[in-house]
Design a protein around this nucleic acid. Structure first.
Length: 411
RNA sequence: GUGGCUGUAGCUCAGGUGGUAGAGCGCCGGAUUGUGGAUCCGGUGGUCGAGGGUUCAAGUCCCUCCAGCCACCCCA
């Protein structure tokens, strides 16, 4: 048997209703904040991610689906979408349009990782980018917007964490300070953290090894190393968030894995997601455009929600998936009437299913199993009388109605 | 990439010390005529993840592989 490839999965009804629900809410909130949709290709030149995401990142070094096209060029299935959106922004000179470009996307991303709870090789992200503003007010608005999407999707008990990772200058200085501070403790650290202390000291801060916790707590905070400009930016972001009533926690140890992040970074975590407890990650990427050869500086900030994880976290909230009307035609003549009538009723917005001719008992059984709210019975009696029998499946009551009356009884 | 756990009907699972498979749910049909949900009866359904090996005999023991889950790594 041919099965879905490792790390990919089929989304089936009724689960797809939850996905649509979440996406509809996201689109509504995006609209409210004047974000418009952008759709970029899944395939991009490999160079885009090597340069945009960072050649040394895990994503680029070991997680990308990369292959050689027939003409010899190297293509990659997008592992994330900020680089792709920025590429499109530069390519189409969106910087020449007035105002900040506020763009959103919904779609699949691909990373070749070992699957586990909340982690897939094909996964879906709902994301947005605001490009062309370096104002901390933009940061605050983006964060406010994403919190609104989560809340309106039915997510509860989530936690917003924010931090500043500084700019190119002050971060470099901080990394040096961190390296020095770590030096005396290296022999006592776990093997993983020993390695990180050498290669990427920032990652030590994000460690989950409990034994290393006492050491990590003593390390200097990046917030004490921020340059005056970065500090000012971060303070204003916090101020604006507070103005808007957004609850957050400053977590100086929040570091993100993509090279392009600078200044504001944020994340939302949730309890019931297993080890992959992050539903959303985002941050500011003021140097990304230049990394991609843009001559115009295009500061931006964005986020992406892990839709798989959001759906997982909210799927306790069951959505009604009922059918408005099941029509049970009892013979050939009734079937023809049913087809025409269904067309009329669907035009009013009702969901209508027409059964094939069957014994009435069987038709009722099916109607019940597909959760039809009502059943319309059309048989010889009904056709002779010019009236139809409408049965309410919840109450069990049945009415004789003229054709014109039916639509009004479907609620 | 590394580690742990698990693979028996569509689903959830039983199947002591090896003797060629079962339940519940679902699905299909029935309990007299054009009325679902409850109950009862009957039926369909599995090369026991795959391939080797040991044995007279393997779902059950051994090996290899594959898949799924969970964790590490990392991230959404």
């Amino acid at each position: 048997m041919i099965r879905a490839v490792k790390g990919t999965r089929d989304l089936l009804p009724p689960d797809t209703a939850v996905w649509n629900h979440v996406e509809q809410i996201a689109r509504a909130v995006f609209h409210a904040y004047n974000y418009r949709e952008i759709r970029t290709p899944i395939l991009e030149e490999t160079q885009l991610f090597a340069r945009g995401v960072g050649a040394e990142t895990d994503i680029v070094t070991k997680e990308m689906y990369t292959f050689e096209d027939r003409d010899g060029s190297s293509l990659t299935m997008r592992p994330e979408n900020t680089a792709g959106v920025m590429r499109a922004y530069i390519e189409h000179r969106l910087d020449l349009l007035p105002g900040v470009q506020k763009l959103y996307y919904i779609g699949p991303m691909f990373r070749r990782e070992r699957p586990q709870k909340g982690r897939f090789r094909q996964f879906y992200q709902i994301g947005a980018e605001a490009i062309g503003s370096e104002s901390p007010a933009t940061d605050a608005e983006v964060i406010q917007m994403v919190v609104e999407i989560l809340a309106r999707s039915g997510l509860s008990h989530f936690e917003l964490l924010i931090n500043s990772v500084g700019c190119g200058k002050c971060r470099a200085q901080y990394i040096e300070k961190l390296r020095e501070a770590l030096q005396p403790f290296i022999p006592q650290l776990s093997p993983d953290n020993q390695r990180r202390a050498e290669t990427n000291p920032l990652r030590v801060l994000d460690s989950k090894v409990p034994e290393d916790e006492p050491i990590i707590e003593q390390l200097p905070s990046i917030l004490d190393s921020l340059c005056p400009e970065c500090l000012e930016h971060f303070e204003r972001v916090r101020l604006y968030l507070t103005d808007r009533g957004i609850k957050f926690e400053v977590k100086p140890r929040l570091v993100r894995g993509l090279d392009y992040y600078m200044r504001t970074t944020f994340e939302v975590v949730h309890g019931n997601l297993g080890a992959q407890n992050s539903v959303l990650g985002g941050g500011r990427y003021d140097g990304l455009a230049e990394q991609l050869d843009s001559k115009v500086p295009s500061p931006g900030i964005g986020f992406s929600i892990g839709e798989d994880r959001l759906v997982m976290a909210v799927s306790d909230n069951q959505l009604p998936d009922a059918l408005d009307l099941y029509i049970a035609p009892m013979d050939e003549s009734a079937l023809r009437h049913a087809g025409v009538l269904a067309t009329e009723l669907r035009a009013t917005g009702a969901s209508v299913e027409v059964g094939t001719t069957a014994k009435l008992k069987k038709a009722m059984d099916i109607a019940n199993k597909v959760s039809a709210r009502r059943v319309l019975i059309i048989g010889e009696d009904e056709l002779a009388a010019g009236e139809y029998s409408l049965k309410d499946m919840t109450s069990g009551t049945q009415l004789r109605l003229s054709r014109a009356e039916i639509a009004g009884h479907l609620k």
